[in-house]
Design a protein around this nucleic acid. Structure first.
Lengths: 215, 215
DNA sequence: CTTAATAGGTAGCTGAACTATCCATAATAG
DNA sequence: CTATTATGGATAGTTCAGCTACCTATTAAG
């Protein structure tokens, strides 16, 4: 009867069953410091609760959905444990979601700056996100993809709408812990949503394009 | 003097130097069918040209920037070689960029349909992009991230702007080959650009949020 | 003619993410 | 109370992707 879903305390077998992860995998996450240890009841016994289940689902979202390596997952869960503010947590997730790269391309930086100051953005030029944007502009320049660079303002405007909506969607849940959880999971799950929606929009407009060419 | 950049014919050493890839790596790509063989001049000699260099840069963009496994890279370069139309090439890249997942979630599908039909989109429900969108909505639902789902229309609208701009940016280059190249590289490089811009927008609005809380 | 480069092939390496096995102890079913 | 099963902890092994090293016969270059 200890296998019922009513009480939050459970042992390894039930944690494994409910998280749909193998016992060895959970042990591995414990060893790697991704999953917090259970409450010890004996020298070789421990009980786990709802928080452990939620942590495993967060790890799952960060690995399978966001495709993060376990080292970055550790950075994110450490920040979540550290009880930072919502905005601080969002910053940590931003840094984890971006593949670090140095960008010393002044030409690309100038192109980007013109576009973002035109919209009055204030953002840290030392942030990984800024460096990633410069890198992207530099690569587009290197590949001579001027049609995209010419439309940079349109992308900046769309990005503003998305970013505003993201911040707007920060939950007004009771506990800080729940809001942090919402920010982190939201950041991770919103990405594939928007990406898929953009592809669907491309499909929609591509149909128009094909039809108009056929006629 | 055969090492000059003027003539397009070159041998392995120069291809390696100009692509900044090791000779063994290029040989590996040849073996894996990612890079087309050079023009043979003897039983153990071949010359490579500009097209091989471009192919290596495309492979680089698909692996380092898009993070695609070599199997998907092969699918994309095969499609490029197959001389499909711009829109067909875009479809292949879409499929390669999406991590396949089945989605039989009717509730999530309904939520998504309401949002996209509201904007009058026509898109194939059998496409990987549609399944990916359903999956994203299903995960957001499972994690109770209602603040994001409540703002689905805003994300759809932003996605529409991005998708329209993407199609609009399809180059009017002379040769079909160049336009295909533009579509494929554009699809791959526009993603990190938009993602980075969204993060910068988040930073901008987060500053506002922090300031208003401090006051 | 000597030295370096090349195509092609096989085998080995590296890192990430598990997975298998073992052991001593503890829970549990009969 | 005893036989079976589960558990925490530790160590070693597995799998896969993406290279990397080495080998051999041939060819190019000086």
């Amino acid at each position: 009867m200890s296998e019922s879903a009513e009480k939050s305390g459970m042992r390894m077998a039930e944690l494994s069953r409910r998280s749909e992860l193998s016992v060895p995998t959970i042990k591995y996450y414990l060893r790697e410091g991704l999953l917090q240890p259970g409450r010890r009841t004996s020298v070789n016994q421990a009980v786990y609760d709802r928080t452990h289940l939620e942590r495993l689902r967060l790890i799952g979202a960060l690995t399978s959905v966001a495709g993060l390596p376990l080292a970055k997952v550790r950075a994110v869960v450490d920040a979540v444990d550290g009880q930072a503010s919502e905005v601080e947590a969002m910053g940590v997730v931003q840094d984890a979601l971006i593949d670090e790269a140095e960008a010393d391309d002044t030409a690309a930086s100038a192109i980007l700056d013109r576009a973002i100051t035109a919209r009055g953005w204030h953002c840290a030029k030392s942030s990984p996100a800024y460096r990633a944007a410069v890198k992207a502009v530099a690569m587009l320049t290197a590949e001579n993809l001027t049609p995209i660079l010419d439309r940079l303002d349109a992308y900046v405007e769309a990005a503003e709408d998305v970013g505003r909506t993201d911040l707007d969607a920060i939950s007004d849940a009771d506990s800080l812990e729940e809001r942090i959880r919402g920010v982190v999971l939201g950041s991770v799950l919103r990405r594939p949503l928007l990406e898929a929606l953009v592809l669907l929009a491309q499909q929609h407009f591509a149909q128009d394009l094909t039809r108009s060419e056929e006629s």
